[in-house]
Structure formats: C-alpha cells, structure tokens
Computed example of a mutant assay.
Amino acid sequence: MRAEDQWESDRLDVDTYLERLGITGPLDPTPGTLRLLHRAHVTTIPFENLDVVLGRGVDLDLGAMQAKLLESRRGGYCYEHNLLFAALLERLGYRVTRLHARPDLQYPKPLPRTHMALRVELEDGTAYLADVGFGDSGPLDPVPFADGEVSEQAGWTYRLTEEPDRAQPWCLHLRRGDEWFPVYRFTLEAHHRIDAVVANHFISTHQRSPFVGRVFLERIAEQWRLNLNNRTLTLRHADGGREESSVDDDRFGDVLADRFGIVLNDSELKSVLAVLPD
C-alpha cells in the first residue's frame, strides 16, 4: 500500500462535503480556495464529544466520519474534523501531511500528544498550517507556515514560531491581549493512520482524557467563540469581551440545537443529562 492510500481519501463524498459547507466549485488548489474551505468548515461544523459521553466511542473510518459530520450534520473532535478535511484537500489536489501535536495551553505538566493538525502544501511549495479541529482556540483561517509570520483573522491573531532546540520545535500561538498564548507544539514528522487510531483510543476512553466524563462542545464564528463545558456556557468576543451563564436541564436540549446545531433524541438527551454535575 502506498503511504497516501492508507487514508482512503478516494472514499470521500466530495459533493456531500461541499453541500454541508455551502460551497460550490470550481475549487482549484490555491491559497484562496484553502482559506474558503477552512473558514467554511470551522464556522459550520461544531466541535463536540457527545458520542464519547453516549458510550459509542469515535470511529475513524472515513465512511463513519462522513456519515456523522456530513450526512447526520453532527460535529466531532480533532481526528474527525482534520481527517475529513485532509481527505477533501487531497481530492482537490493539495499535498497534506497529518501531524500530531502536544497541546500546551500553559499547562503546568506535559499533556499527551493527542491533537491532530495538518501541513498543507501548494504546487509552488508554499505551505500552511490548517486546523479545523481545535475548537474555540483554533484558527479561523490557515496560518502561513513561516517562523514568526503573523496571521490576522477577523480580530483573532495567530502565528507559528520555530525553536529548533525544543523536542517539538514548532508552536502555534494565539494572541491574547499583549501576550502570545501557546496553543500546541509539534514536529513535522508525518504520521500514519494507526497512530491516529491509537491516540483516538486514549482520548475517547482513558479516564484522564479531557473528553471522558464531561460534556464539551465548541463553536466558532468570525467574531465570537462559544464553549459549553458541562453546564457552563461561555461566549468570547474578538474584542476580548466575555459572557458566561449556566444551562439547566430544561434548556440543555435547546442550547445544543440552537447554539451548536446538534439535535438529540429524547433518549440521547437523557443520557447526556445524566453525566452533568448538579
């Protein structure tokens, strides 16, 4: 098997994907097309872990991911988002390297290297970091793959930096006020599908995973970022404003539907509510 065949990008239903994003062709593999697709994906498909909460696990088979995120109009987490997006980009003629990253987030101890991001290269050799699966700290648009180059994105500002002496020399930063907040660190090593399967098993089943035992959803728009962490709903604006509220049982299903576009049946909603703290 050729290395690129392991991802089975040829199985992707491109038309269904583009319909989900509300995009029509032609879509030549240019920087403008990459930006269009990236922004459409992150503002359309939410980040969510509800299948973990419901005990279903997360299936990284391409057919299962597109059935869930595209046909059933659900969301997912980084592997689902970025594996689907990588398949779309490859079908459109981009060269894609799937990378594994270690979230930083100024956490006091090393976090596991369980995030997936993408290096996307154009025919002229220009490259971008694409990441449609990091939720409310992730970029709205692709970030130029160049040390220190700043990317302004509708009031949100990102940059990549390279520190060759570090084990993970590349770092994605988000500017918060006057400071650069480290989002995650990574190397340029290409990974295989089995690497994603192993990391996905940890993140969807291990008791120390941030997505096991709690409800977690995020939604990105151009001017705001929405986060639901169990019952706490937080809205952050590009200008630094912040609003926070608590969601009770009676409103929970409506918040999922109205704010995140996810509709659960009565049985699913009951199971999700059972996980929430009082």
Rank of each mutant, 00 (worst) to 15 (best):
V58P: 00
G177Y: 10
L37F: 12
L27Q: 04
P112A: 07
D195W: 03
V255Y: 03
Q153E: 05
G93A: 08
R185E: 14
L105I: 05
S72W: 10
E90V: 08
H192Q: 14
Y77P: 01
L105E: 09
V120L: 07
H201L: 10
R98D: 07
S209R: 04
L160V: 10
L84V: 11
C78I: 08
E189Y: 02
M116Y: 06
R208S: 12
D254I: 01
E123T: 07
S72G: 06
L88Q: 06
S72E: 15
D248H: 12
R185F: 00
H41W: 15
A257E: 15
L99A: 09
Y158C: 12
L174P: 02
A196K: 04
Q66P: 01
R11Y: 07
G148H: 10
L54V: 09
L160A: 08
A196M: 13
F181A: 03
R259V: 07
M1I: 10
L269P: 04
P110T: 04
L60E: 02
E48A: 01
Y77K: 03
E244V: 14
V198G: 00
L140Q: 09
V263M: 07
D178H: 11
M116W: 05
L111R: 15
R231D: 02
L129P: 09
R98Y: 09
V215T: 14
G155A: 08
I194S: 15
R225V: 12
Y17L: 08
S204R: 06
S209F: 06
P26H: 10
L172N: 00
S245E: 15
R74D: 04
P210T: 10
L18V: 08
Y158L: 09
C78A: 11
G125H: 03
R251M: 10
L99V: 14
F181L: 10
Q207W: 11
H100I: 13
D147A: 10
V212F: 03
Q153A: 05
H206G: 03
P26I: 08
F211T: 01
R11N: 10
H38E: 08
L226A: 11
G76V: 12
L140Y: 13
M1P: 13
L21V: 08
R259E: 15
Q66Y: 13
E163W: 06
R251Q: 15
G125A: 06
Y79D: 00
E90K: 14
F216D: 07
R56S: 11
E80T: 11
